[in-house]
Write a protein that binds this DNA or RNA. Structure first.
Length: 303
DNA sequence: ACTCCCCAAGCTCTATGCCG
DNA sequence: CGGCATAGAGCTTGGGGAGT
């Protein structure tokens, strides 16, 4: 049972403006009310919360948010935004004028192939108000963080997507073989014997493993390769390869981003690829800001 | 169920006090 | 002086109770 007796929800809208402005007069302008009206609202809010919320600064100019006020800012704003979505169903999102922070969880492959293009093009796609934080998708807490609203969007392959989330396919991915430009192997097409004889760098996103998808495929063929190094981050591999004779097997889009320094070859055996998805909490399905973000990423994935 | 009326609440504005 | 708080007067709005 939700009990909000005695609380005028419009007061919370005023509080949202007060906390954003830290200034009664400017909050009043924003709310299309007079300064005394908002001042009395602030007095009522102080009563309700049992906290000064805004404290007049020592200098006599400006006000400072109390600790309680600071803690309230984000959740209150998010709650009011959610409420607006429910009530109005579709408040428009304008990336060029609206203020919004997005948190995207992804491994460094997805961050490289989708995040970097997004970051590079952000200045033309959105205004100063749109900021994006990329965070590591660390299973299994990702699902909980999506649930709590700490993460807006998860980029990952099918096995990373919690069943309770909505998801959209971004693209199919396949693996390619990579070696540095000028590698002593030469640039002829790769055969299975050569592949197995080279020293491989494996990306183990869970960390520490020397046995990956490719090794499963080789197993099935009754073959094996030499995995000399295991790293947890895709982004380390190009640097490692250009300064050595190590080779690797990488997702093709990631490899293409480094084609100035690395040569790409088809694998000498059939290897299963994967599909990259964007996933989000069902409550955000109609949030226009997240609809925009998903559309933008889908466009970039298709480009 | 509907209408009418009263009252409380909250808005407006102006004026003014207070504080650094 | 700038900015917030408060007071008083007048107005509108909406809820609740009483009467039909």
């Amino acid at each position: 049972m939700i009990d909000l007796r005695g609380i005028d929800l419009n007061l919370l809208v005023s509080l949202d403006a007060l906390l954003a402005e830290s200034n009664v007069t400017r909050a009043a302008e924003r709310l299309h009310l007079t300064q005394p009206a908002v001042s009395t609202q602030l007095a009522r809010l102080r009563q309700i919360f049992g906290d000064p919320l805004l404290i007049p600064a020592e200098t006599g100019r400006g006000m400072t948010r109390s600790a309680r006020a600071l803690a309230l800012m984000e959740p209150l704003h998010a709650a009011l935004k959610n409420l607006e979505v429910v009530v109005r169903h579709q408040p428009a999102f304008d990336p060029h004028s609206d203020v919004r922070r997005f948190v995207i969880a992804a491994n460094d492959n997805a961050t490289s192939v989708l995040g970097l293009p997004l970051m590079e093009r952000l200045p033309e796609l959105a205004g100063q108000g749109v900021r994006i934080a990329f965070v590591v998708a660390d299973q299994p807490s990702t699902a909980e963080r999506l649930e709590r609203g700490e993460i807006d969007l998860l980029l990952g392959s099918e096995r990373m997507i919690p069943a309770s989330m909505k998801a959209r396919k971004l693209f199919d991915e396949r693996f390619v073989f990579v070696q540095r430009k000028g590698h002593p192997r030469g640039t002829t097409p790769l055969d299975l014997d050569t592949y197995c004889s080279l020293k491989h760098v494996l990306v183990s996103t869970s960390g520490g493993s020397f046995y990956g998808f490719m090794d499963e495929h080789l197993d099935a063929l009754g073959r094996a390769r030499r995995v000399a190094l295991s790293v947890q981050h895709f982004t380390l591999v190009p640097e490692l390869l250009v300064n050595s004779d190590y080779v690797s097997t990488l997702p093709s889009r990631f490899a293409e981003r480094h084609n100035k320094r690395l040569d790409l070859f088809e694998l000498p055996f059939e290897a299963r690829g994967f599909t990259l998805f964007a996933a989000w909490h069902p409550r955000n399905h109609v949030d226009p800001a997240l609809v925009w973000l998903r559309e933008t990423l889908t466009d970039l994935a298709a480009a």
